[in-house]
């Protein structure tokens, strides 16, 4: 493991009805980790727990040694992008971004300048006055990433937010994620079912099999010689 661990999943056990998921590993600052696994294996469940929507049955989620359990989602060092509904449809794009700076939307001139900068940074300059329904899927993803850039939280959780986009657009978004993460120094956890995404992200991959989130291993190593469960999932002989 490179550097000191900042995110620690310590004997984490998540339970939702009959479903059970455990994880016991840690990640260093600025790491890129893809979370892969068959659908229903608990990829989103893991992210929900880190983001604070699902209290664990037992174990701890630690950030820089501090247990996050019990901390409400908004107070965690986390930005999360969901599969959809990342923007409020009744607010403009600028207002949606502003929520990342000040939930009461009272922006200082300085905040405004940062907001414009962030919009320009993701290629949405001049579109701040639009509403989400007037944007394409790719543009909506960019807006959500711009807000992540403004919030600059040290953990960026991506719960398949680009699943509905085409391969070229998805690649573009992953590049943008890479830039945003570089600028904010964020640790990235990306849920995906596409090995291509995991390779593009770089870093390590945590594969989920039989209710256990495996310790992440470097993605290139993993793909070169996949364990049997992953091989089945990928459909390789």
């Amino acid at each position: 493991m490179r550097g000191a661990a900042v995110l620690e999943l310590d004997h984490l056990e998540l339970v939702q009805g009959p479903f059970r998921l455990t994880a016991h590993w840690s990640a260093g600052p600025g790491e890129r980790i893809a979370v892969m696994g068959p659908s229903g294996s608990g990829k989103s469940t893991l992210l929900s727990a880190i983001a604070g929507f699902l209290p664990p049955q037992s174990g701890a989620v630690r950030w820089q040694g501090r247990d996050l359990v019990g901390l409400p989602p908004g107070e965690r060092p986390v930005t999360i992008l969901f599969q959809d509904q990342n923007l409020f449809p009744h607010l403009t794009i600028a207002q949606n971004l502003a929520l990342g700076l000040r939930p009461d939307l009272r922006l200082s001139p300085d905040d405004r300048a940062r907001l414009e900068q962030a919009l320009a940074r993701v290629g949405l300059a001049g579109l701040g006055a639009r509403r989400p329904a007037q944007l394409s899927g790719g543009q909506a993803s960019r807006a959500a990433l711009a807000r992540a850039l403004l919030r600059a939280r040290p953990i960026l959780l991506l719960d398949e937010p680009f699943a509905a986009l085409g391969p070229a657009l998805r690649q573009e978004m992953l590049d943008l994620v890479d830039q945003v993460a570089r600028e904010t120094g964020a640790l990235v956890l990306l849920v995906t079912h596409d090995p291509g995404d995991a390779l593009a992200l770089g870093g390590r991959t945590a594969f989920i099999a039989e209710g256990v989130v495996q310790v992440p291993v470097p993605t290139t190593t993993l793909m070169a010689d996949p364990p049997p469960a992953l091989r089945d999932y990928l459909g390789r002989k």
């Binding site: 983001a51 107070e75 986390v78 509904q85 409020f88 929520l99 990342g100 939930p103 939307l105």
Partner: peptide, 15 residues
């Protein structure tokens, strides 16, 4: 989404 953005109290009511 609102929880993850710490949108609560009067701001949540208003926005």
């Amino acid at each position: 989404l609102a929880d993850s953005l710490a949108l609560r109290g009067l701001a949540r009511l208003r926005w």
